[in-house]
Design a protein around this nucleic acid. Sequence first.
DNA 1: TAGATTGTTAATCGATTAACAATC
DNA 2: TAGATTGTTAATCGATTAACAATC
Lengths: 209, 209
Amino acid sequence: MKKQNVSDAVIRRLPRYYRYLHDLHRKGIVRISSSSLGEKMGITASQIRQDLSCFGEFGQQGYGYNVEELRAEIGHILGVDRQHRVIVVGAGNLGRALINNFRFHDSGFLLEAAFDVSPNLIGTEVGGVPVLNMTELERFIPEHRPDVAVLTVPQAVAQSTANRLIDLGVRGFWNFTNVELTSTVENVRFEDVHFADSLLTLSYRITAR
Amino acid sequence: MKKQNVSDAVIRRLPRYYRYLHDLHRKGIVRISSSSLGEKMGITASQIRQDLSCFGEFGQQGYGYNVEELRAEIGHILGVDRQHRVIVVGAGNLGRALINNFRFHDSGFLLEAAFDVSPNLIGTEVGGVPVLNMTELERFIPEHRPDVAVLTVPQAVAQSTANRLIDLGVRGFWNFTNVELTSTVENVRFEDVHFADSLLTLSYRITAR
DNA sequence: TAGATTGTTAATCGATTAACAATC
DNA sequence: TAGATTGTTAATCGATTAACAATC
């Protein structure tokens, strides 16, 4: 690790590098140069080398990069080898769809439990994950110390639920509520998935003018 | 409409402006200045004025902006008043979760039908939307001319399904497959929702180093 | 060794912020 | 009218691209 302040633009490109390197590795490709990777990804070789230089020196002059080695390095930078623990808070349609479909493990996350208020759901299992009563949060979190909460609760309780989780020690939020959350507590991180914003940018681009 | 080339950075901020103005309007606020809006949103007044100037002149010196008027203008720029038609292709967990939870109407979209290959799903309704056989696409699309397809099919058939829809005339794709789609056909637009990329950026930011 | 390709420094480009005349 | 705030031009900042010495 080299740089202190890596820009958000660089960070947001890392997962894409990780994905491409993963695919190349699966295809059995052993080495790649920044120029051929750039061609595949539709970006410049300069950008790739500049981005990587934020974190260290991973290549070799005259050779390029070892695909599996670079994939592992970027995975390490992203923290996929940390076995972060995650819980799903709100086991409605969206929460259950994520549990059933999203491969948390592939991103290095260990999904430990889901929480809901609905008596119909409490006590059941979704995709092998137990759904617990929301009232259990106060017991569960100090015991299991999850790193991230997937927030899939109704908008009306989004901020109050986040506050409750922050008080209990959760610092990472994967926020699907479409509410912009805030906190004054240090080191709390919100990653928002704003479906509506995403669809509206598509709407803009297909709108004839 | 003024500018030809509005940068992606500006376009991606528009939905957020739209959201904030919507909230202000709901709260009964009639006028707002760029500086007080900027303060609320955590951005500079300059940026707001610069962004808006890409599309026209919506304010008044000494007064600021009429909230409802500006909201409507940005809505128009984004195309929410176009009643774009949308179909969901792939009615698995994620497709059904979107149909049940996502307010397509609030973004100006009219959800017309869902499609799947599963006999268990074909013929049923999800959230008031009929689930049709994928084989019906060839009949349905020329007839209803949907503007956007929500792509929630398995990764293995993502590109081939996209190609099929493009051949039938679909030009907008809200892509949840985590596969990067391509097309040589003009005016085809892909808006990717990369869950894994999003979670990995969160992983990066909570990883102690 | 010769060719290829890195990591890094310098140049360019674009986006954000500041300043201010115009004017409601 | 005086104060406030716009739209726009200029200045600054940061990110991307180009160039190249170092070296495998």
